Amino acid sequence: MNDRTVPVLALTVGDPVGIGPEITAMTLAEYAGTPDHHGIAVGDASAVRRGAQAAGLDVEVRTVTDFATPPAGEGVIDVFDIDVLGDREPAWGVVDATAGRAAVAAIEAATAAAMAGEVDGVVTGPINKEAIWASGSEHLGHTEMLGELTGVTEQDTMFVVRSRTNPEHHLRIFFATRHVSLRKALDQLTKERQQDSIRRALQALEVYGVDEPTLAVAAVNPHGGENGAFGREELDEIIPACEELREQGLKVVGPIPADSVFHQGLEGRFPGVLSQYHDQGHIAAKTYDFDGTISVTVGLPILRTSVDHGTAFDIAGQGKADPGTMRSAYLAAVDYAPYVPRMRAAYGS
């Protein structure tokens, strides 16, 4: 492993013709010289330089070949150069197969470094799926790619939202169902699936630093179904799932109506909420704090945080990109880096 006293994090640039190079450069420039952590961009050095220029930054972009290279201090951005683009400067905001290959190569390099213990975590910039596919990759996105690279077949998404009234409190949001239609999501809300999702969420809370956690389960119907008047999912599936797990000693509360459960969580009543379908949790988190909401992939033996937005091709290279979510993802990785040994123990093969 390592004997580092501060976390070293690999920030993948994402698609080099999207806003990834800009927000990566801005984030690293902001924290260059910070003694408590060291961020290193992973991507083409030429893309990072172009991103820094587009963002109007007065910084030096330094190429490193070893993640153990000490930081140079304020005004210097370090980049582990994958050198896929070569002398090419593909047009901003246009799907490009070579740019897609560069995005994949950056993910591969950063993940390999994390698996080898050379870095404490990976912070991923936005990729373009069309460019990824044009490069020859068959992966649907980051999650599938990371699963293959780490040998993991089951991963979950954990949103992290920081409370404004109590910045030390983080609400974690998990998802019982993900990228399916609402109709299919309702069909998937079985007691067995609920219990599996609850157990996995509770395990993730412990792995990511919450001792003896409590998980709140969101209801799916208005007012929690009103005893079956507005739907039977609570009566038939969710309530029995929660009751059985409580009888087994697990700290599960709910189901709680979705119009209040996220607010209660942000107030600090519990550290985690199980959202029943994709938009239920996404809307709550992003309405509360769009730039501050970040995504963590749990189930991996490495730490991975991510921005939760796309490549924004329409503004790429124009100096309009907001680094807020990348900044939040980077700082979340700093916070979670001490728990990497727990991740390896819980999810390693």
Rank of each mutant, 00 (worst) to 15 (best):
M1A: 15
N2L: 05
T5L: 14
V6K: 15
L11T: 04
T12D: 02
G14V: 09
P16L: 10
G20L: 08
T24D: 00
T27Y: 09
L28S: 03
E30T: 14
T34P: 00
T34L: 00
I40E: 00
A41N: 02
G43N: 07
S46F: 01
S46K: 10
V48L: 13
R50G: 01
A52I: 02
A52K: 03
Q53K: 15
A55C: 01
A55F: 02
D58L: 12
D58P: 04
V59P: 01
T63L: 08
P70K: 12
P70M: 12
E74N: 05
G75T: 03
I77Q: 02
F80R: 13
F80N: 03
D81Y: 06
D81G: 03
V84W: 05
V94W: 09
D96M: 09
A97L: 11
G100K: 07
V104E: 07
A109L: 05
A110Y: 03
T111A: 07
A112S: 13
A114R: 08
E118F: 07
E118T: 03
V119Q: 06
T124V: 14
G125V: 10
I127R: 03
I127Q: 02
N128G: 07
K129C: 04
H139V: 10
H142I: 10
T143N: 08
T143R: 09
E144S: 10
E148V: 15
V152S: 15
M158T: 03
R162W: 04
R162D: 00
S163V: 11
P167R: 12
F174Q: 04
T177D: 02
R178M: 12
R183Q: 14
D187Q: 15
D187F: 13
T190G: 09
E192I: 12
R193D: 08
Q195G: 07
D196S: 13
D196H: 14
S197C: 15
R200G: 11
Y208F: 15
E212G: 03
T214K: 13
A216M: 08
V217Q: 01
A219K: 02
H223F: 12
H223W: 13
F230W: 12
E233Y: 12
E237H: 15
P240E: 08
A241K: 10
L245A: 10
L245Q: 09
R246D: 03
G254N: 02
A258E: 01
S260C: 09
Q264G: 01
G265R: 00
F270H: 10
F270M: 04
L274A: 04
H278I: 00
Q280M: 13
G281T: 06
T287F: 12
Y288T: 01
D289L: 05
T293H: 02
V296R: 01
V296Y: 00
G310I: 14
G310H: 13
Q318E: 11
G319R: 09
G319T: 08
K320C: 00
M326A: 04
Y330K: 08
A333S: 11
D335M: 13
Y336C: 02
Y336R: 05
P338D: 09
R342N: 15
M343P: 00
M343F: 07
